[in-house]
Design a protein around this nucleic acid. Structure first.
Lengths: 211, 211
DNA sequence: GTCTATAGACGGATAGAC
DNA sequence: GTCTATCCGTCTATAGAC
Protein backbone atom coordinates (compact mmCIF):
# COMPACT_ATOMS: atom_id res chain seq x y z
CA UNK A 1 0.00 0.00 0.00
CA UNK A 2 1.15 3.51 -0.75
CA UNK A 3 1.07 6.66 1.31
CA UNK A 4 3.34 5.78 4.21
CA UNK A 5 4.93 9.21 4.03
CA UNK A 6 8.55 9.58 2.96
CA UNK A 7 10.38 6.62 1.46
CA UNK A 8 13.34 5.14 3.24
CA UNK A 9 16.46 7.08 2.33
CA UNK A 10 18.93 5.59 -0.13
CA UNK A 11 22.41 5.06 1.24
CA UNK A 12 24.39 6.78 -1.45
CA UNK A 13 23.82 9.29 -4.17
CA UNK A 14 24.84 6.70 -6.73
CA UNK A 15 22.31 4.19 -5.51
CA UNK A 16 19.58 6.82 -5.60
CA UNK A 17 20.48 7.76 -9.14
CA UNK A 18 20.47 4.11 -10.17
CA UNK A 19 17.07 3.53 -8.60
CA UNK A 20 15.74 6.63 -10.33
CA UNK A 21 16.92 5.40 -13.71
CA UNK A 22 15.31 2.02 -13.08
CA UNK A 23 12.03 3.67 -12.07
CA UNK A 24 12.07 5.77 -15.20
CA UNK A 25 12.58 2.71 -17.38
CA UNK A 26 9.93 0.80 -15.43
CA UNK A 27 7.36 3.55 -15.98
CA UNK A 28 7.65 3.10 -19.72
CA UNK A 29 7.34 -0.67 -19.59
CA UNK A 30 4.54 -0.87 -17.01
CA UNK A 31 2.51 1.83 -18.72
CA UNK A 32 2.66 0.12 -22.08
CA UNK A 33 2.21 -3.46 -21.01
CA UNK A 34 0.40 -3.33 -17.68
CA UNK A 35 1.70 -5.13 -14.62
CA UNK A 36 1.44 -8.75 -15.74
CA UNK A 37 2.78 -8.39 -19.24
CA UNK A 38 5.68 -6.26 -18.08
CA UNK A 39 8.83 -8.31 -17.45
CA UNK A 40 11.88 -7.52 -15.36
CA UNK A 41 13.96 -8.44 -18.39
CA UNK A 42 12.42 -5.63 -20.45
CA UNK A 43 12.69 -3.13 -17.63
CA UNK A 44 16.34 -4.04 -17.09
CA UNK A 45 17.02 -3.76 -20.80
CA UNK A 46 15.37 -0.33 -20.92
CA UNK A 47 17.50 0.73 -17.97
CA UNK A 48 20.64 -0.65 -19.58
CA UNK A 49 21.46 -3.22 -16.91
CA UNK A 50 20.95 -6.93 -16.34
CA UNK A 51 17.93 -8.41 -14.66
CA UNK A 52 20.03 -9.58 -11.72
CA UNK A 53 21.39 -6.08 -11.23
CA UNK A 54 17.88 -4.71 -11.18
CA UNK A 55 17.05 -7.16 -8.41
CA UNK A 56 20.03 -5.93 -6.46
CA UNK A 57 18.31 -2.55 -6.16
CA UNK A 58 14.74 -3.77 -5.68
CA UNK A 59 13.60 -6.84 -3.76
CA UNK A 60 11.14 -7.87 -6.48
CA UNK A 61 8.81 -6.92 -9.29
CA UNK A 62 6.08 -5.56 -7.09
CA UNK A 63 8.51 -3.29 -5.25
CA UNK A 64 9.53 -1.77 -8.58
CA UNK A 65 5.89 -1.25 -9.47
CA UNK A 66 5.09 0.44 -6.16
CA UNK A 67 8.14 2.67 -6.52
CA UNK A 68 6.94 3.76 -9.95
CA UNK A 69 3.45 4.51 -8.66
CA UNK A 70 4.78 6.52 -5.70
CA UNK A 71 7.15 8.42 -7.91
CA UNK A 72 4.47 9.25 -10.46
CA UNK A 73 1.72 10.08 -7.99
CA UNK A 74 3.73 12.89 -6.45
CA UNK A 75 4.10 14.52 -9.84
CA UNK A 76 0.52 13.82 -10.84
CA UNK A 77 -1.02 15.51 -7.83
CA UNK A 78 0.73 18.84 -8.11
CA UNK A 79 -1.77 20.74 -10.25
CA UNK A 80 -4.79 19.13 -8.66
CA UNK A 81 -4.89 21.55 -5.76
CA UNK A 82 -4.55 24.62 -7.88
CA UNK A 83 -8.12 25.97 -8.05
CA UNK A 84 -8.13 29.45 -6.54
CA UNK A 85 -11.41 30.25 -4.76
CA UNK A 86 -10.77 33.99 -5.18
CA UNK A 87 -10.24 33.73 -8.92
CA UNK A 88 -12.71 34.04 -11.77
CA UNK A 89 -14.42 30.58 -11.93
CA UNK A 90 -14.39 30.09 -15.69
CA UNK A 91 -10.77 31.15 -15.88
CA UNK A 92 -9.78 28.83 -13.06
CA UNK A 93 -11.56 25.86 -14.61
CA UNK A 94 -10.18 26.69 -18.02
CA UNK A 95 -6.67 26.74 -16.63
CA UNK A 96 -7.27 23.43 -14.86
CA UNK A 97 -8.47 21.78 -18.06
CA UNK A 98 -5.54 23.16 -20.01
CA UNK A 99 -3.05 22.01 -17.38
CA UNK A 100 -4.44 18.48 -17.23
CA UNK A 101 -4.47 18.24 -21.00
CA UNK A 102 -0.86 19.38 -21.11
CA UNK A 103 0.03 16.68 -18.61
CA UNK A 104 -1.65 14.09 -20.83
CA UNK A 105 0.40 15.28 -23.75
CA UNK A 106 3.73 15.53 -21.99
CA UNK A 107 3.44 12.52 -19.71
CA UNK A 108 1.16 10.01 -21.39
CA UNK A 109 2.99 7.13 -19.74
CA UNK A 110 2.04 8.39 -16.29
CA UNK A 111 -1.59 8.66 -17.32
CA UNK A 112 -1.62 5.16 -18.79
CA UNK A 113 0.08 3.74 -15.72
CA UNK A 114 -2.82 4.89 -13.54
CA UNK A 115 -5.38 3.85 -16.12
CA UNK A 116 -3.98 0.32 -16.08
CA UNK A 117 -3.87 0.25 -12.30
CA UNK A 118 -7.45 1.47 -11.88
CA UNK A 119 -8.79 -0.78 -14.63
CA UNK A 120 -7.27 -3.70 -12.74
CA UNK A 121 -9.26 -2.66 -9.67
CA UNK A 122 -6.64 -0.37 -8.10
CA UNK A 123 -5.04 -3.15 -6.02
CA UNK A 124 -2.02 -1.02 -5.13
CA UNK A 125 -3.49 2.48 -4.84
CA UNK A 126 -7.00 1.76 -3.58
CA UNK A 127 -6.16 3.24 -0.20
CA UNK A 128 -4.75 6.33 -1.81
CA UNK A 129 -7.93 6.85 -3.83
CA UNK A 130 -10.18 6.58 -0.79
CA UNK A 131 -7.92 8.74 1.34
CA UNK A 132 -5.80 11.59 -0.04
CA UNK A 133 -7.47 11.69 -3.45
CA UNK A 134 -10.98 11.80 -2.04
CA UNK A 135 -9.94 14.56 0.37
CA UNK A 136 -8.51 16.59 -2.45
CA UNK A 137 -11.65 16.17 -4.53
CA UNK A 138 -13.80 17.15 -1.58
CA UNK A 139 -11.75 20.28 -1.11
CA UNK A 140 -11.99 21.26 -4.77
CA UNK A 141 -15.67 20.41 -4.87
CA UNK A 142 -16.22 22.81 -1.99
CA UNK A 143 -14.54 25.59 -3.94
CA UNK A 144 -16.78 24.89 -6.93
CA UNK A 145 -19.86 24.75 -4.70
CA UNK A 146 -18.93 28.15 -3.36
CA UNK A 147 -18.81 29.60 -6.86
CA UNK A 148 -22.22 28.11 -7.63
CA UNK A 149 -23.71 29.50 -4.42
CA UNK A 150 -22.44 32.93 -5.44
CA UNK A 151 -24.13 32.55 -8.79
CA UNK A 152 -20.81 32.71 -10.64
CA UNK A 153 -21.12 29.23 -12.14
CA UNK A 154 -23.97 27.12 -13.52
CA UNK A 155 -25.39 24.76 -10.88
CA UNK A 156 -23.90 21.32 -11.52
CA UNK A 157 -22.69 18.52 -9.25
CA UNK A 158 -19.09 19.56 -8.50
CA UNK A 159 -17.76 16.02 -8.07
CA UNK A 160 -19.16 14.85 -11.38
CA UNK A 161 -17.79 17.98 -13.00
CA UNK A 162 -14.31 17.11 -11.74
CA UNK A 163 -14.74 13.57 -13.03
CA UNK A 164 -15.84 14.95 -16.37
CA UNK A 165 -12.68 17.02 -16.62
CA UNK A 166 -10.48 14.08 -15.72
CA UNK A 167 -12.25 11.89 -18.26
CA UNK A 168 -11.93 14.21 -21.24
CA UNK A 169 -8.33 15.17 -20.57
CA UNK A 170 -6.93 11.72 -19.76
CA UNK A 171 -8.75 10.21 -22.71
CA UNK A 172 -6.20 11.67 -25.11
CA UNK A 173 -3.32 9.94 -23.36
CA UNK A 174 -4.96 6.67 -22.40
CA UNK A 175 -6.78 5.90 -25.63
CA UNK A 176 -4.29 7.38 -28.02
CA UNK A 177 -4.41 4.49 -30.53
CA UNK A 178 -8.15 5.03 -30.91
CA UNK A 179 -7.80 8.81 -31.11
CA UNK A 180 -5.15 8.49 -33.80
CA UNK A 181 -7.13 5.93 -35.74
CA UNK A 182 -10.20 8.13 -35.80
CA UNK A 183 -8.52 11.50 -36.37
CA UNK A 184 -5.83 10.31 -38.75
CA UNK A 185 -2.15 11.02 -38.47
CA UNK A 186 -2.18 14.65 -37.45
CA UNK A 187 0.84 15.66 -35.41
CA UNK A 188 0.26 15.28 -31.68
CA UNK A 189 0.70 18.98 -30.98
CA UNK A 190 -1.94 19.95 -33.48
CA UNK A 191 -4.29 17.26 -32.19
CA UNK A 192 -3.98 18.51 -28.65
CA UNK A 193 -4.55 22.11 -29.71
CA UNK A 194 -7.81 21.13 -31.41
CA UNK A 195 -8.80 19.10 -28.37
CA UNK A 196 -8.12 22.02 -26.06
CA UNK A 197 -10.19 24.36 -28.18
CA UNK A 198 -13.16 21.99 -28.28
CA UNK A 199 -13.05 21.08 -24.60
CA UNK A 200 -12.78 24.70 -23.49
CA UNK A 201 -15.54 25.86 -25.82
CA UNK A 202 -18.03 23.26 -24.64
CA UNK A 203 -17.13 23.21 -20.94
CA UNK A 204 -16.80 26.94 -20.36
CA UNK A 205 -19.97 27.75 -22.29
CA UNK A 206 -21.77 24.93 -20.51
CA UNK A 207 -20.68 26.21 -17.10
CA UNK A 208 -21.42 29.91 -17.68
CA UNK A 209 -23.98 31.02 -15.09
CA UNK A 210 -27.49 30.91 -16.48
CA UNK A 211 -28.91 34.32 -16.90
CA UNK B 1 -7.35 -9.40 -36.99
CA UNK B 2 -11.07 -8.85 -36.77
CA UNK B 3 -13.59 -7.89 -39.39
CA UNK B 4 -13.33 -10.80 -41.80
CA UNK B 5 -17.10 -10.88 -42.11
CA UNK B 6 -19.11 -13.75 -40.65
CA UNK B 7 -17.40 -16.32 -38.45
CA UNK B 8 -17.19 -19.94 -39.53
CA UNK B 9 -20.45 -21.69 -38.57
CA UNK B 10 -20.50 -24.06 -35.59
CA UNK B 11 -21.47 -27.63 -36.42
CA UNK B 12 -24.16 -28.15 -33.87
CA UNK B 13 -26.45 -26.11 -31.70
CA UNK B 14 -24.85 -27.61 -28.62
CA UNK B 15 -21.38 -26.57 -29.68
CA UNK B 16 -22.57 -23.06 -30.37
CA UNK B 17 -24.18 -22.84 -26.95
CA UNK B 18 -21.02 -24.11 -25.31
CA UNK B 19 -18.88 -21.63 -27.14
CA UNK B 20 -21.24 -18.85 -26.15
CA UNK B 21 -21.03 -19.77 -22.50
CA UNK B 22 -17.23 -19.82 -22.70
CA UNK B 23 -17.21 -16.44 -24.40
CA UNK B 24 -19.44 -15.02 -21.71
CA UNK B 25 -17.15 -16.29 -18.96
CA UNK B 26 -14.10 -15.08 -20.86
CA UNK B 27 -15.54 -11.56 -21.15
CA UNK B 28 -15.65 -11.29 -17.38
CA UNK B 29 -12.12 -12.55 -16.88
CA UNK B 30 -10.45 -10.62 -19.73
CA UNK B 31 -12.22 -7.39 -18.80
CA UNK B 32 -11.10 -7.58 -15.19
CA UNK B 33 -7.58 -8.81 -15.68
CA UNK B 34 -6.57 -7.78 -19.17
CA UNK B 35 -5.15 -10.25 -21.67
CA UNK B 36 -1.92 -11.28 -19.96
CA UNK B 37 -3.21 -11.63 -16.41
CA UNK B 38 -6.23 -13.61 -17.57
CA UNK B 39 -5.66 -17.38 -17.39
CA UNK B 40 -7.42 -20.19 -19.20
CA UNK B 41 -7.80 -21.85 -15.82
CA UNK B 42 -9.90 -18.95 -14.49
CA UNK B 43 -11.97 -18.73 -17.67
CA UNK B 44 -12.65 -22.45 -17.57
CA UNK B 45 -13.59 -22.25 -13.92
CA UNK B 46 -15.99 -19.36 -14.61
CA UNK B 47 -17.54 -21.40 -17.42
CA UNK B 48 -17.78 -24.48 -15.21
CA UNK B 49 -15.53 -26.72 -17.29
CA UNK B 50 -11.92 -27.86 -17.25
CA UNK B 51 -9.09 -26.11 -18.99
CA UNK B 52 -8.68 -29.00 -21.41
CA UNK B 53 -12.34 -28.88 -22.33
CA UNK B 54 -12.05 -25.20 -23.05
CA UNK B 55 -9.20 -25.98 -25.41
CA UNK B 56 -11.36 -28.48 -27.20
CA UNK B 57 -13.63 -25.63 -28.30
CA UNK B 58 -10.94 -23.06 -29.00
CA UNK B 59 -7.48 -23.65 -30.46
CA UNK B 60 -5.81 -21.37 -27.91
CA UNK B 61 -5.97 -18.40 -25.63
CA UNK B 62 -5.79 -15.81 -28.35
CA UNK B 63 -8.67 -17.41 -30.25
CA UNK B 64 -10.83 -17.08 -27.15
CA UNK B 65 -9.86 -13.45 -26.83
CA UNK B 66 -10.66 -12.68 -30.45
CA UNK B 67 -14.02 -14.42 -30.12
CA UNK B 68 -14.86 -12.26 -27.12
CA UNK B 69 -13.88 -9.08 -28.96
CA UNK B 70 -15.93 -10.00 -32.03
CA UNK B 71 -18.91 -10.91 -29.93
CA UNK B 72 -18.76 -7.70 -27.94
CA UNK B 73 -18.04 -5.40 -30.85
CA UNK B 74 -21.28 -6.35 -32.58
CA UNK B 75 -23.23 -5.35 -29.53
CA UNK B 76 -21.17 -2.24 -28.96
CA UNK B 77 -21.74 -0.81 -32.40
CA UNK B 78 -25.51 -0.95 -32.49
CA UNK B 79 -26.35 2.47 -31.04
CA UNK B 80 -23.36 4.20 -32.53
CA UNK B 81 -25.05 5.09 -35.79
CA UNK B 82 -28.17 6.53 -34.23
CA UNK B 83 -27.79 10.28 -34.83
CA UNK B 84 -30.73 11.44 -36.95
CA UNK B 85 -29.79 14.38 -39.21
CA UNK B 86 -33.44 15.45 -39.40
CA UNK B 87 -33.87 15.55 -35.62
CA UNK B 88 -33.35 18.40 -33.17
CA UNK B 89 -29.56 18.49 -32.61
CA UNK B 90 -29.54 18.95 -28.83
CA UNK B 91 -32.13 16.21 -28.43
CA UNK B 92 -30.17 13.85 -30.65
CA UNK B 93 -26.93 14.46 -28.81
CA UNK B 94 -28.68 14.19 -25.45
CA UNK B 95 -30.09 10.83 -26.41
CA UNK B 96 -26.69 9.69 -27.64
CA UNK B 97 -25.04 10.63 -24.34
CA UNK B 98 -27.79 8.92 -22.36
CA UNK B 99 -27.58 5.77 -24.44
CA UNK B 100 -23.80 5.51 -24.12
CA UNK B 101 -24.00 6.10 -20.39
CA UNK B 102 -26.62 3.37 -20.07
CA UNK B 103 -24.32 1.00 -21.92
CA UNK B 104 -21.55 1.80 -19.48
CA UNK B 105 -23.86 1.00 -16.60
CA UNK B 106 -25.34 -2.18 -17.99
CA UNK B 107 -22.28 -3.60 -19.71
CA UNK B 108 -19.24 -2.31 -17.85
CA UNK B 109 -17.29 -5.46 -18.71
CA UNK B 110 -17.61 -4.71 -22.42
CA UNK B 111 -16.36 -1.18 -21.89
CA UNK B 112 -13.39 -2.34 -19.81
CA UNK B 113 -12.53 -5.01 -22.36
CA UNK B 114 -12.04 -2.36 -25.03
CA UNK B 115 -10.28 -0.04 -22.61
CA UNK B 116 -7.75 -2.77 -21.83
CA UNK B 117 -7.30 -3.59 -25.50
CA UNK B 118 -6.75 0.02 -26.55
CA UNK B 119 -4.45 0.77 -23.62
CA UNK B 120 -2.34 -2.15 -24.74
CA UNK B 121 -2.03 -0.51 -28.15
CA UNK B 122 -5.05 -2.15 -29.82
CA UNK B 123 -3.04 -5.11 -31.17
CA UNK B 124 -6.18 -7.07 -32.07
CA UNK B 125 -8.63 -4.36 -33.14
CA UNK B 126 -6.31 -1.77 -34.64
CA UNK B 127 -7.67 -2.52 -38.09
CA UNK B 128 -11.21 -2.17 -36.88
CA UNK B 129 -10.45 1.25 -35.39
CA UNK B 130 -8.90 2.54 -38.59
CA UNK B 131 -11.62 1.02 -40.77
CA UNK B 132 -15.23 0.64 -39.66
CA UNK B 133 -14.93 2.81 -36.56
CA UNK B 134 -13.31 5.70 -38.40
CA UNK B 135 -15.97 5.50 -41.11
CA UNK B 136 -18.71 5.63 -38.53
CA UNK B 137 -17.14 8.62 -36.82
CA UNK B 138 -16.73 10.37 -40.16
CA UNK B 139 -20.38 9.79 -40.92
CA UNK B 140 -21.55 11.10 -37.58
CA UNK B 141 -19.16 14.02 -37.76
CA UNK B 142 -20.71 14.97 -41.08
CA UNK B 143 -24.16 15.04 -39.49
CA UNK B 144 -22.88 17.28 -36.72
CA UNK B 145 -21.13 19.53 -39.21
CA UNK B 146 -24.42 19.88 -41.04
CA UNK B 147 -26.16 21.07 -37.89
CA UNK B 148 -23.39 23.58 -37.25
CA UNK B 149 -23.60 24.90 -40.82
CA UNK B 150 -27.34 25.42 -40.32
CA UNK B 151 -26.63 27.38 -37.15
CA UNK B 152 -28.44 24.84 -34.99
CA UNK B 153 -25.39 23.91 -32.93
CA UNK B 154 -22.40 25.79 -31.53
CA UNK B 155 -19.38 25.58 -33.83
CA UNK B 156 -17.05 22.94 -32.42
CA UNK B 157 -14.84 20.26 -33.96
CA UNK B 158 -17.28 17.37 -34.50
CA UNK B 159 -14.69 14.62 -34.09
CA UNK B 160 -13.40 15.97 -30.82
CA UNK B 161 -16.96 16.38 -29.63
CA UNK B 162 -17.61 12.69 -30.30
CA UNK B 163 -14.41 11.81 -28.46
CA UNK B 164 -15.52 13.99 -25.58
CA UNK B 165 -18.80 12.10 -25.34
CA UNK B 166 -17.04 8.73 -25.44
CA UNK B 167 -14.60 9.85 -22.78
CA UNK B 168 -17.14 11.08 -20.23
CA UNK B 169 -19.53 8.16 -20.65
CA UNK B 170 -17.00 5.33 -20.67
CA UNK B 171 -15.18 6.83 -17.73
CA UNK B 172 -17.88 5.62 -15.36
CA UNK B 173 -17.43 2.01 -16.43
CA UNK B 174 -13.68 1.93 -16.97
CA UNK B 175 -12.55 3.80 -13.86
CA UNK B 176 -15.25 2.64 -11.52
CA UNK B 177 -12.91 1.98 -8.55
CA UNK B 178 -11.78 5.61 -8.69
CA UNK B 179 -15.32 6.91 -9.15
CA UNK B 180 -16.54 4.91 -6.17
CA UNK B 181 -13.61 5.93 -4.02
CA UNK B 182 -14.21 9.61 -4.71
CA UNK B 183 -18.01 9.63 -4.58
CA UNK B 184 -18.44 7.17 -1.72
CA UNK B 185 -20.65 4.12 -1.69
CA UNK B 186 -23.75 5.50 -3.40
CA UNK B 187 -25.76 2.87 -5.24
CA UNK B 188 -24.72 2.56 -8.88
CA UNK B 189 -28.12 3.60 -10.20
CA UNK B 190 -28.10 6.82 -8.24
CA UNK B 191 -24.52 7.53 -9.26
CA UNK B 192 -25.36 7.16 -12.91
CA UNK B 193 -28.43 9.37 -12.58
CA UNK B 194 -26.31 12.16 -11.11
CA UNK B 195 -23.70 11.64 -13.81
CA UNK B 196 -26.33 11.86 -16.54
CA UNK B 197 -27.74 15.06 -15.14
CA UNK B 198 -24.33 16.72 -14.92
CA UNK B 199 -23.15 15.58 -18.35
CA UNK B 200 -26.34 16.67 -20.07
CA UNK B 201 -26.43 20.02 -18.29
CA UNK B 202 -22.87 20.92 -19.28
CA UNK B 203 -22.81 19.43 -22.77
CA UNK B 204 -26.20 20.61 -23.99
CA UNK B 205 -25.74 24.10 -22.60
CA UNK B 206 -22.22 24.18 -24.02
CA UNK B 207 -23.46 23.16 -27.45
CA UNK B 208 -26.48 25.47 -27.67
CA UNK B 209 -26.03 27.73 -30.70
CA UNK B 210 -24.50 31.05 -29.70
CA UNK B 211 -26.86 33.84 -30.21
C1' DG C 1 28.19 -4.33 -7.68
C1' DT C 2 27.44 -6.78 -11.78
C1' DC C 3 27.23 -10.64 -14.24
C1' DT C 4 26.02 -15.90 -15.82
C1' DA C 5 23.69 -19.81 -14.60
C1' DT C 6 19.95 -21.95 -12.73
C1' DA C 7 16.28 -23.15 -9.45
C1' DG C 8 11.34 -22.98 -8.89
C1' DA C 9 6.61 -21.52 -10.01
C1' DC C 10 3.20 -20.79 -13.33
C1' DG C 11 0.48 -20.95 -17.43
C1' DG C 12 -0.48 -22.57 -22.22
C1' DA C 13 -0.99 -26.47 -24.78
C1' DT C 14 -1.00 -31.73 -25.77
C1' DA C 15 -1.55 -36.89 -24.98
C1' DG C 16 -4.26 -40.36 -23.92
C1' DA C 17 -7.62 -42.81 -20.80
C1' DC C 18 -12.46 -43.16 -20.36
C1' DG D 1 -16.51 -34.75 -25.39
C1' DT D 2 -14.42 -34.39 -21.07
C1' DC D 3 -11.15 -35.36 -17.93
C1' DT D 4 -6.18 -36.16 -15.55
C1' DA D 5 -1.51 -36.08 -16.25
C1' DT D 6 2.22 -34.03 -18.31
C1' DC D 7 5.28 -31.39 -21.37
C1' DC D 8 7.39 -27.13 -22.42
C1' DG D 9 8.24 -22.37 -22.53
C1' DT D 10 8.48 -18.12 -19.84
C1' DC D 11 9.23 -15.43 -15.91
C1' DT D 12 10.58 -14.28 -11.04
C1' DA D 13 14.05 -14.77 -8.00
C1' DT D 14 18.49 -16.67 -6.08
C1' DA D 15 23.35 -18.59 -5.97
C1' DG D 16 27.78 -17.86 -6.77
C1' DA D 17 31.83 -16.47 -9.77
C1' DC D 18 34.39 -12.40 -10.74
Amino acid sequence: MLGHGGSEPRRTRIQAAKRASIVKAALEVFSEAGYSAATLERIAEAAGISKASLLYYFPGKEAVYVAVLEDTLAFWLEPLAALDPAGEPLEEIGRYVTTKLEMSRKRPAASRLFANEILAGAPAIGGFLKGPLKELVDKEAAVISGWIAEGRLAPVDPRHLIMMIWAVTQHYADFDPQVQAVLGREAAKRRFAAARETLLAVLLEGLRPRG
